[in-house]
């Protein structure tokens, strides 16, 4: 019993040191990026001349009105999509496609339903065959403990609750030791309670190893609670409306949101978002009095 305890400690020490070595977080940069969709005669620029640099080791939150092209940005950062003009750079190097240095956590769960939670988590290292079996198991077990899903290892995703699915998905991304985590509205669709729990869980996770993180959301509270830097996006064509540095103390707890500071950030951001949303609303609704 004791022996195994010691062993466990050793294991986690090994792994956390391994994690620290990957702490050399990366910077991301978008340089004059343009991306539009549609044919020549019906072309709509979703993103035009968009520039933004994302600092290493920071949690950058992108917030914007719905339909403003957040997902298009995510797709380009992840490498699923390429800009028409301009460049997307990771550590000054051009991004040409998806890679395991950037892990994406998707809107709705993207766990393979035909694999158990464990099989899902080890999917990446297993197909790349870049970790010996014993080490992989050790790492996976450590991550399962971390996300609190040890008893659910052998369940299929459908048997897990929404929050558990998201945690399994986080583990599936973290096992690859990515330089950057890209989260595209990852907590959408969760009920309010599990959403809050996930936010707290996620913020702790981030504060532990401060990996470069891009988090896309349309929830302003979530944005302020998580962010080091809050990027408020404008309507289409998307540009940076304002960058707000969130200087709330870390480690954060949810009650930080009731501070006057947080309230001020929220009011600022809300004002901008409201303006942008209104523009979109006016554009899309026919004039009522005509």
């Amino acid at each position: 019993m004791q022996q195994s305890d010691i062993k466990n400690k050793n294991n986690s020490a090994d792994i956390s040191s391994a994690e620290k070595s990957t702490e050399n977080s990366a910077s991301l940069e978008l340089r004059n990026v343009c991306r539009g969709f549609g044919d020549e005669w019906s072309r709509e620029e979703v993103i035009s001349d968009f520039s933004l640099s994302i600092n290493p080791g920071e949690l950058t939150v992108l917030v914007g009105p719905s339909g403003c092209g957040k997902t298009t940005l995510v797709n380009m950062l992840a490498g699923f999509d390429k800009p028409d003009t301009g460049q997307v750079l990771l550590n000054e190097k051009l991004i040409t496609g998806p890679g395991m240095d950037r892990m994406v956590v998707f809107q709705e769960t993207a766990l393979m339903p035909w694999l158990t939670a464990y099989q899902n988590v080890v999917f990446g290292p297993k197909i790349r065959n870049d970790l010996p079996g014993r080490e992989l198991k050790k790492k996976a077990d450590y991550l399962f403990e971390k996300v609190g899903l040890v008893e659910f290892k052998d369940k299929y995703p459908i048997q897990l609750s929404g929050g558990m699915q998201r945690r399994a998905e986080l583990a599936r991304a973290m096992i690859n030791d990515p330089l950057v985590m890209i989260m595209d509205e990852p907590f959408r669709g969760l009920d309010a309670m599990s959403r809050e729990l996930m936010q707290e869980f996620f913020v702790r996770l981030f504060e532990e190893n401060r990996r470069t993180n891009i988090f896309v959301t349309s929830e302003i509270d979530e944005a302020i609670f998580l962010a080091d830097r809050l990027i408020v996006l404008s309507n289409r064509p998307t540009s940076v409306r304002k960058i707000i540095d969130i200087k709330l103390p870390r480690p954060r707890e949810l009650n930080v949101l009731s501070s006057t500071e947080a309230y001020k950030y929220k009011r600022d951001a809300m004002e901008l978002l409201h303006e942008e949303a209104l523009k979109n609303f006016k554009r899309s609704t026919p004039k009522a009095d005509s």
């Binding site: 992840a78 699923f80 496609g97 998806p98 890679g99 395991m100 950037r102 892990m103 994406v104 998707f106 709705e108 993207a110 393979m112 999917f123 990446g124 197909i127 790349r128 599936r172 690859n176």
Partner: peptide, 14 residues
């Protein structure tokens, strides 16, 4: 679902 393809590619699938 297209997300599964994306997830697989992201995780380094050939």
């Amino acid at each position: 679902d297209k997300e599964y393809f994306r997830a697989a590619k992201c995780l380094g699938s050939k």
